[in-house]
Design a protein around this nucleic acid. Sequence first.
DNA 1: GTGGTCTAGACCACA
DNA 2: GTGGTCTAGACCACA
Lengths: 122, 122, 122, 122
Amino acid sequence: MIILDYKDSRPIYEQMTDKIRKLIINRVLEPDSRMPSVRSLAVDLSVNPNTVQKAYAQLEREGFLYTIKGRGNFVAYNENLKQHVKEDYAQKLQGLFKEAKEAGISHEELLAYVKERGEKND
Amino acid sequence: MIILDYKDSRPIYEQMTDKIRKLIINRVLEPDSRMPSVRSLAVDLSVNPNTVQKAYAQLEREGFLYTIKGRGNFVAYNENLKQHVKEDYAQKLQGLFKEAKEAGISHEELLAYVKERGEKND
Amino acid sequence: MIILDYKDSRPIYEQMTDKIRKLIINRVLEPDSRMPSVRSLAVDLSVNPNTVQKAYAQLEREGFLYTIKGRGNFVAYNENLKQHVKEDYAQKLQGLFKEAKEAGISHEELLAYVKERGEKND
Amino acid sequence: MIILDYKDSRPIYEQMTDKIRKLIINRVLEPDSRMPSVRSLAVDLSVNPNTVQKAYAQLEREGFLYTIKGRGNFVAYNENLKQHVKEDYAQKLQGLFKEAKEAGISHEELLAYVKERGEKND
DNA sequence: GTGGTCTAGACCACA
DNA sequence: GTGGTCTAGACCACA
């Protein structure tokens, strides 16, 4: 269920970590289940094995995967992870609000505007 | 008033466009006032003239500066620009909310969390 | 009656030659009448005298002005000039049609489209 | 199929964008096909890689190319592009007609003259 | 002096 | 290998 968008400006390995992370958080990939091997996933996605390796390493650093040498990569979900993710989005959001404020737009103004926009798109 | 951060991962020319854009939007740089010349700003920031040139060209494309050959670059603020900037932040915010939602975090939950965090930091 | 647009991308001297040329062709500036001196026009338009000089020299080359040393520049209209101008526009138009054709747009298609557009703008 | 004209007053990168744009619009370069790499095209045309880079960046901004870092530049044709190009020529044509009118030449007169000229050249 | 273009060549992230 | 950024420095048109 990983679809890569080559026209996306983000690097491939980042698209992969993002998608896999979501799959883990939303329990689509079950805790302690085995991930596809680097090589097989590389073949499936028509991507360089280096790229898959890079994505797995990144997710391991973040605590979403753990590796057992010779056996493979496994899903490492635990409740703390969701908290980390929340922290992450909270930081990004605060950064965005701070930037907007520097550009003369309060976060109330911005939220009101987004709400209005959202309704149009419904 | 432009300080470059070489530890920042963003390219120098992008840091420059971001800072100058903010100065223009906040009216620190007045409409139709002259920007420092490509060369003088390059010397001030210890940066290559090409890099300043790239930043100025970008800002011209965005409508924040206009250029008169042989004369210099000038601030081109008009009221439409703030609207564009607002649109820009609104889009980013919607993108962030959408992503968070995919990670299992509603935008209400995220905003509540950010509010709580913000109060701690006060 | 010469208004310069500093936000126009064309160089100042070219804007000047274009405007003066039109004034001559349309008989606003009468044949054999005296043009303002380089210096006075430079002052009037808040422009470098070099720039006025360049414009006058260009118009002399094209046959729209003639110079009498120590007396000034004079309007040199004669019927041939209009023909030259017509030739000039005809060439530009053919160039445009040729380019459009290379981009896959016939001149009939283009003219039809412009006509349609024009009616909307009325 | 790209030939540069060093006697042309237009900058090299602009000649390149113009030629490539035409090749894309006319489907000589097929959608999603890979463009030559920045470096290889630079060598082929005996031009600096920065210059090719500038041309590709311009075409990306215009929507004719899309870039995948580490992979290359790809043709991004879609039907909207032809419409944009048509708009572009229509605007130029209207500008030309307006100018000619100010010089005392109606667009009917100009078109008739061009038609006559064209027949001579056949 | 001022911006715009270009070369030669380097370094980096990504694949 | 591939694109993106950057430096050092040159040359040109324009004012």
